[in-house]
Amino acid sequence: MNASSSARPGRIAPSAAGYLMLLPALAVIVLLVIVPMLVIARDSFAISDPLGGNLGGFTLANYEKLIDPVYLKTLGYSLGMALLNAVVCTVVGYIVAYYIATRRASLQPVLLVLVIIPFLTDFLVRTFAWITLLGSGGPFISLLRALGVDAQSLVPSQLAVTLSLLYAFLPVAVFPIYAAMRSIDPSLKEAAADLGAGWWQTHARIFVPLSASGLASSVMLTFVPTLGVFVIPVLLGGGKDPLVGNLIVTLFTEFRNEPLGAALSMVVLILMLASVAGAGLLLRNGARRNRSLGKDA
């Protein structure tokens, strides 16, 4: 095994066992992901029935309808929010994951579980707890008012939305980063310290590159699902700026326009697949470079 071989180091040539291991996932993906997506793709060209069903047939009208400033504006705003959330979650997630990964081995699982416990309480119950905390009867506002500041309720506000998105998505950022970081040989850090590398250098040259796959997962797991969020913008943001998730839910439920909802979903799906594929390509090149770099360190 050496870096000069064209294949990634440590990867064994395909064998029956390798494909066998992929079978269960293949079954899930084909039956429960690809088939449903084909159903949606089909529906996006169907004619909608005002009663809420779909009449079949073939039309491009649904896609034509989407070329409307209303949808473009919402899509743009959603992408911005998703990007912001992905960056915030990944940065905070990295800090927390690093903290956990550098604790005593016996303490690490305890800390991981501590990260996850708050999420055993229901999402809505947590969200309402935030509303109580940030609302005008809550401790923050009361404290500010006691200090003589004329503070208004923090709900609804953009800040409240950002905070609760971070809250909702933090574990999916922490876990993959932690999983990747844990396997980093701790002696690398000592070596870096011995060589006089500062904090930034140690992270930029060792921890970030070696946990790149975890960071990439974190970005993906926080960016993409933000687009489907629909409760938070309404409850903490006042619902005046809907995310694309709100629109899709509205199309499927209140508007009972499954074909239009399907068309919007296809657009989101294709946008996301393209950006994931793009990010994957970038990352693969980056990872290859970093891997050899990590080995050198």
Partner: peptide
């Protein structure tokens, strides 16, 4: 990670689809 399997990119992409599709879409189609 361990095997050089054909269609690796397809697999990774396909596994990610449920994350990309808005849940309501996945729910309705399921």
């Amino acid at each position: 990670v361990r095997f050089r399997v054909k269609g690796r990119a397809f697999f990774v992409g396909a596994i990610l689809i449920p994350l990309i599709v808005p849940e309501i879409v996945l729910g309705v189609s399921l």
